[in-house]
Measured scan of single mutants.
Amino acid sequence: CHSECLGNCSQPDDPTKCVACRNFYLDGRCVETCPPPYYHFQDWRCVNFSFCQDLHHKCKNSRRQGCHQYVIHNNKCIPECPSGYTMNSSNLLCTPCLGPCPKVCHLLEGEKTIDSVTSAQELRGCTVINGSLIINIRGGNNLAAELEANLGLIEEISGYLKIRRSYALVSLSFFRKLRLIRGETLEIGNYSFYALDNQNLRQLWDWSKHNLTITQGKLFFHYNPKLCLSEIHKMEEVSGTKGRQERNDIALKTNGDQASCENELLKFSYIRTSFDKILLRWEPYWPPDFRDLLGFMLFYKEAPYQNVTEFDGQDACGSNSWTVVDIDPPLRSNDPKSQNHPGWLMRGLKPWTQYAIFVKTLVTFSDERRTYGAKSDIIYVQTDATNPSVPLDPISVSNSSSQIILKWKPPSDPNGNITHYLVFWERQAEDSELFELDYCLKGLKLPSRTWSPPFESEDSQKHNQSEYEDSAGECCSCPKTDSQILKELEESSFRKTFEDYLHNVVFVPRKT
C-alpha cells in the first residue's frame, strides 16, 4: 500500500485506493498535508475557505447554543480562536489581540433580562453583547459592586439597553466600559436606550469621564423622579442622539420631579488639616426662599486615587461607600458681607490618608415646582503625618564578641513616609551569675543571650482551647457569634421535631 494509506488498500502504491488515510483526505486521495488554498479540518480532512465560511455563517444565523462559528488559524479551520487571539470578521482569520481579548457573548432569543446578581454573573467577562440587555433589578445585597464585577467589562451592545423598574439602582456607572450601543435591534418605538419607572436612579454616568455613542435609535425617559433633566440632556449631547427624540420621548413632568437638581456650584473657602482632623468651610448658599434650606450634607471617604465619582458603590438597598454628615444651616444675616460661612470639623480620621470630599445642599421643593440647590466639586484632601507606631517583631542576635545583629519589621501604621529608623542602645553591667558559677561542674549549661522565638506554653494553649472559665478566673470563653447562636437554635429545633416524629412513629394507638 501507499505510504499515506492506513489499515489496508485495494490497489498497491495508489493513494486513492486506501481504506483510511494516515494524515489527511483531499478529493478522494490521501495526502501528507493540505496544500494551499485548503485548510486542515478536524485533523483528517482538507477543506477550502468557502466550506469553513459556510459553517461560520450557519452557526451565526441559527443562534443555536453550542454550535461553533468556525475560524481560520495556522492553516486550520477550527471552532474558535485560541487564547490571546480574536477573529477578523472580513476573512475569519485569528489575529493577536492588542491588550485583553474581546469576548463576544451571543444571547438566546436576542435579549437577556438581568433581574438578579445570579443572572448578571452569566455575563461575567463579556466585552461584546450580541443582542439586547434588559435591566430589571428590584433589590439585593452589595448590588453596585456585584454588577460592576460582572457587567463592568461590557464595551458594546449590538441591540438596545433597557432599564425598567430597577428600584435598587442609583447610577449606571457599573457599566464602566460601555462605549457603544449599535441599535441594530430596537425596542418598540425605535428606541435604543429605554429608561422607565426607576424610582431611585439619580445618575446615568459621570459624563466628564465617560463617552457613549448610540449609532441608531432614540432615547426614552419616563417616570424617573430623581433623575434630573440636565442629566438626560447631557446624554443626548454626548451620545449623538440630540435631535432624534420626539416631543413625548422625554417626559418633562415625570423626570426629576422629586430630585434636588443642583444648578449652582458650592466653593470651599477654608481648608485646614491635622493628622486626624480636617476643618472645612464653604461659601454660604440661600435659595430664593431661605426657609427652603434644610441644611447641608457632607460626604467623605478614603480615596487612594483621584478618580472618585459621587455615586460609586451606591445602591438604593443601603450600600453606600460614603460617610454622610448632616449639618444645620448657619444663622442668616441681613448683611451679605457678614454672612457666616458654614463648615464642619471632621474628626477621627487616619493620618497621612487622602480623602475625597464634597458637600451639597438639602432643600425642600418650592411652590413653583422649581428645584434649587448647590453642590461642590469633589475635592481631595490629605491629612498630615504623625509619629508612626512601633516597629514590629524586633530580633537581636550576637554573632561574635563585638557585634549584635538587630532586625525588625516595619510598623503596622507608618502614618507617613518613613525615611529612617533611630536605634538606641545602652551598655549593661555583666551578670554576677557568670562569676559565681563553678565551671568545672559536669552538665553545666552556660547562660545564653542568643534570641529564641517566643512560644506559647501548654497552660496558655489549654486556656485558649477551654470553653469555660478556669477556677483562677484568668480566662473566659469568647462570646458566641450570631451565626453560632442561630445554628444552635436550628439544631435544637431539629432535635425537638425529630423526637416528636419518633414518638408518633414508635407509639401507635392500640386498636379498641
Rank of each mutant, 00 (worst) to 15 (best):
K103P: 10
V104K: 02
H106R: 09
L107C: 03
L108G: 11
E109P: 06
E109K: 13
K112Y: 05
K112G: 03
K112T: 14
I114A: 02
I114S: 00
D115F: 05
D115C: 04
S116Y: 04
S119E: 07
A120V: 06
A120W: 05
A120L: 09
L123Y: 11
L123P: 01
L123S: 01
T127Q: 06
T127M: 11
I129K: 01
G131H: 02
G131Y: 02
S132N: 08
L133T: 03
I134D: 02
I134T: 03
I135C: 15
I135H: 05
I135N: 00
I137N: 12
R138W: 05
G140H: 15
N141I: 11
N141M: 10
N142M: 15
A145S: 08
E146V: 03
E146F: 08
E148R: 11
E148G: 08
N150I: 03
N150Y: 03
N150S: 11
L151K: 00
L151F: 04
L151S: 02
G152C: 12
G152D: 11
L153W: 09
I154H: 00
I154T: 08
I154V: 13
E155V: 15
I157V: 05
I157H: 01
I157L: 05
S158A: 15
S158T: 13
K162F: 08
R165T: 06
Y167P: 14
Y167M: 15
A168T: 14
A168I: 09
A168S: 00
L169P: 06
V170S: 04
L172N: 02
S173K: 15
F174A: 13
F175Q: 00
F175K: 00
R176A: 04
L178M: 04
L178R: 00
L180E: 14
L180C: 10
G183A: 03
G183S: 06
G183R: 02
T185Q: 12
T185C: 09
L186P: 09
L186V: 05
E187S: 03
I188A: 02
G189R: 03
G189S: 10
Y191L: 04
Y191T: 08
Y194I: 10
Y194H: 13
A195Y: 00
A195T: 04
N198G: 01
Q199M: 11
Q199A: 12
N200A: 12
N200G: 06
L201S: 01
R202G: 08
L204C: 13
L204S: 06
W207Q: 09
S208A: 15
K209F: 09
K209R: 09
K209D: 04
H210I: 11
N211M: 10
N211K: 11
L212P: 04
T213Y: 04
I214W: 08
I214N: 09
I214F: 11
Q216G: 03
K218P: 15
L219G: 07
F220R: 04
F220G: 11
F221A: 10
K226W: 06
L227A: 04
L227E: 00
L227S: 01
L229G: 03
S230L: 14
E231H: 08
H233G: 04
K234I: 07
K234S: 08
M235A: 07
E237I: 13
E237D: 11
E237Q: 13
S239N: 08
S239H: 05
S239Q: 10
G240P: 03
T241W: 12
G243W: 05
G243F: 15
R244K: 14
Q245I: 10
Q245T: 13
E246W: 03
E246K: 11
R247M: 11
N248F: 04
D249A: 07
D249E: 13
I250S: 10
I250D: 12
A251T: 13
L252V: 10
L252K: 06
K253S: 13
K253W: 14
T254N: 09
T254S: 06
N255K: 03
N255P: 04
D257Q: 01
D257I: 14
D257S: 02
Q258W: 11
A259C: 14
C261H: 03
C261L: 02
N263I: 13
E264N: 04
E264K: 04
L265G: 14
L265V: 14
L266A: 05
L266V: 07
K267G: 07
F268G: 00
S269Q: 15
S269L: 14
F275Y: 12
F275M: 10
K277A: 07
K277Q: 04
K277M: 04
I278N: 01
L279E: 10
R281Y: 11
W282T: 14
Y285L: 03
W286E: 08
P287D: 02
P288I: 13
R291E: 15
R291V: 01
R291Q: 01
D292Q: 04
D292R: 04
L293R: 03
L294T: 06
F296A: 08
M297R: 01
M297D: 13
L298Y: 03
L298A: 12
L298T: 10
F299Q: 14
F299G: 10
Y300P: 00
K301A: 04
E302P: 12
A303D: 10
T309A: 06
T309L: 03
E310W: 10
Q314A: 10
D315K: 01
A316N: 13
C317L: 03
C317V: 03
C317R: 02
C317P: 03
G318K: 07
S319G: 06
N320K: 04
N320V: 10
S321I: 07
T323A: 07
V324Y: 09
V324L: 10
V324C: 02
V324K: 02
D326F: 08
I327H: 14
P329S: 07
P329M: 13
R332Q: 06
S333R: 08
S333E: 14
N334V: 06
N334M: 07
K337W: 14
S338L: 08
S338F: 13
S338Y: 08
N340K: 08
H341V: 07
L345K: 12
L345C: 10
L345W: 13
M346T: 10
R347V: 09
L349P: 01
P351Y: 13
W352T: 02
W352K: 04
W352N: 10
T353P: 00
T353H: 15
A356T: 05
A356R: 03
I357C: 03
I357M: 03
F358Q: 09
K360N: 11
K360Y: 01
T361K: 02
V363F: 03
T364S: 03
F365Q: 14
E368M: 05
E368Y: 07
R369D: 05
R369V: 07
R369I: 13
R370W: 07
R370N: 04
R370T: 07
Y372K: 06
G373H: 03
A374V: 04
S376W: 01
D377A: 07
I378R: 05
I379S: 08
V381S: 05
V381H: 05
V381P: 06
T383C: 12
D384H: 15
D384V: 14
P388V: 00
P388I: 00
S389L: 03
V390S: 03
P391Q: 00
P391Y: 00
L392T: 05
D393P: 13
P394W: 08
V397I: 10
S400V: 10
S400P: 08
S400H: 10
S401Y: 05
S401L: 10
S402A: 05
I404S: 13
I404N: 02
I405T: 14
I405M: 01
L406R: 00
K407V: 03
W408K: 00
K409I: 01
K409T: 02
P410F: 13
P410S: 15
P410H: 13
